[in-house]
Design a protein around this nucleic acid. Structure first.
Lengths: 213, 213
DNA sequence: GTGGAAGCGGAAGAGCTTTCCGTTAATATA
DNA sequence: TATATTAACGGAAAGCTCTTCCGCTTCCAC
């Protein structure tokens, strides 16, 4: 939640401030990356970012050794804001309404930040830190809201917060040639599935899940 | 559905047979690719495939200029078999049961062939041919079955075959650290959403879809 | 057989990520 | 202010990939 500290913390390391030019360069890189990611997605070449920031590649890698460190720096604030929205919505609406409204907020984040949904599902270990922060902030925020909604009996309770987040994120992935409305429609179908089960305790009435091969 | 012809077809091109060594090499490449894809997914380096086949990279690119040409050669038979299963299931069951059973078959294909689901959603133009064949074979097969199921009134009719295929394929994508059962559970939720709407004509009762930004 | 085209192999070129280290310049200290 | 220290910079270079290209080889029709 906090930015990287400007001082080394903990055990007796000498208290040396981070150089201010270093801090400025980091900020310039984040600003450049924000612009480039918006134009070309999170897979844009590193060179493009460093050129835009007027810095060398070495500097980029010094501050952001893995790609997700940079993506995370760009998105940290928005991810946190999305997580914090759970509390606001939960206070203003009944649990079911709040859940749906928050999921709407969540899909907006995924849809608006081109490449975020994709990065979250990348097998590439370079994106681990991003997934880590995402899970650490979003999942704990959603959990109580989902539990409250399930307690009303109008939302199924056999899916945990993690699964719900993953499912929705998958459905937000862009499909190459598709029309714009499709994403919303498949999300609507999924949400209906999330609600229509009236069973309070037992397993969902859908066909038994197949064992994965 | 058919393999590439051994003779040039159509307009007056001279009728020259494909050389038999070329044919053998193509087969060797497909066999090698099948093995490598199974081990490492469809993104495995080309070198690995040619080494396994004992051929040069030039030969690979001569026969399969784009990656999806190779993926397609590896999977063509299984995709076609899956498409053909629609007719069999449709003849043996009522439409709703047949639809669910076929979707089960479809998810098995996506889950079993590591990387297929991912390749289908890749932005990379190198996978266009694969998507093309997929859409050309699978979508027309599913369409009448979905229409029949919708006609029973027990399956919603506001989603076309293409959208259904895409949605299910997205939900089949692997999520990096997740437990095996999750995929089946989110599919089950989606299927419930596909069924629970009793409205015959009107739009689904879920909240209005937001415009994508 | 033999001529010519189809096909082969791997070198070469281009693009990318990531590392490394000589140089530059910010900061602490006097 | 002057100087020593060292964090931080920049870009060359290494390493990986995909893709193209072209001289050489092999097959096939005649």
């Amino acid at each position: 939640m906090s930015e990287q500290p400007d001082r080394a913390v903990g055990d007796g390391t000498p208290p040396r401030r981070r150089r201010v030019d270093a801090r400025q360069n980091m900020d310039a890189l984040v600003a450049a990356a924000t612009a480039v990611f918006a134009d070309e997605g999170v897979d844009a070449p590193a060179k493009q970012i460093t050129d835009r920031a007027g810095l060398g590649v070495g500097t980029l890698y010094r501050h952001f050794p893995r790609r997700s460190d940079l993506v995370l720096a760009v998105l940290r604030h928005e991810i946190d804001t999305c997580a914090d929205a759970v509390a606001t919505l939960g206070a203003a609406h009944d649990p079911e309404t709040a859940l749906v409204a928050w999921l709407d907020r969540y899909t907006a984040l995924l849809a608006h930040k081109q490449g975020l949904a994709h990065a979250l599902h990348s097998e590439d270990p370079a994106f681990e830190a991003l997934r880590g922060h995402f899970d650490a902030r979003i999942e704990p925020a959603l959990r109580p809201l989902l539990a409250a909604a399930a307690a009303t009996g109008r939302v199924r309770d056999d899916l945990d917060a993690q699964e719900l987040l993953h499912a929705v994120a998958l459905l937000c992935l862009p499909v190459p040639g598709e029309e714009p409305g499709h994403r919303d429609r498949r999300l609507a179908v999924f949400l209906d599935g999330l609600r229509c089960t009236s069973a309070g305790e037992g397993p969902a009435p859908s066909p038994p899940a197949r064992r994965p091969s």
